[in-house]
Amino acid sequence: MRTAGIDIGSITAKAAILDTGKILGTRVSFTGYNVEIAAKKVFEDLLEELGLKAQSIERIVSTGYGRNGVAFAHKAMTEIICHGTGAHYLNPRVRTVIDVGGQDSKALLVDENGAVKDFVMNDKCAAGTGRFLEVMARAMEVNLDDFGALSLNAGSPSKISSICTVFAESEVISLISKGEVRENIIAGIHDSAASRVYAMAQRIGATPPIMMTGGVAKNIGMVRALEKKFNQTIEVSDLAQVNGAIGAAVLAGRL
């Protein structure tokens, strides 16, 4: 059976198509302001890329913040279940999933069958999310793709004490004006975001093996900072950003 998962996040839209449990392809594009158009576009582009017709997809599950706006999906499910299922699909040994996306971060515990046992999400605060890193990268005038890697070259990371994105930005600006080494500030920013995510994950008692998913998993600085906090390696798949869409496609097969 051919299934699809559509994950509409706050910043990017993701699609994955599976054939009897095997990934045929995945795709990422920007969400923009219209969820329905973004969902259609990412799905149709992926179909075209794979040379498939929409009719050949039997079941579709949507997820992410825009999940209820995807009219062509058979069912909408939350990103919690989809990330849990996706991570279990990629590596069945994984017991904790840390998903850091554009506007939220979450941690979830997965059992040996891939069922989510417990989860926790950030509250009304952007610290520890992709948006936080984006704002900081802009303040540092660094391309987001290079942001994480630069943090690895820090001699001694600066201390960013504000947990609020807006206040942390002014703290960063004041460090810049004091002439602090750029890499140190960037490492400090990653430390600060990682502390937030770590503290949140500890609330549900994160247990290894840990996998990181979501767009921020592409940021090596964030992964390393989290590894330091957890004092263990964190698995990151090449498919981390589309993990939610993969999980949705797996769940579509069970409808």
Binding site: Y65, M77, T78, E79, I80, I81, A115, V116, K117, D118, F119, M121
Partner: peptide
């Protein structure tokens, strides 16, 4: 989203 996820669990 939290209620949906909670009810799924």
């Amino acid at each position: 989203a939290r209620i949906d996820a909670f009810m799924e669990i």
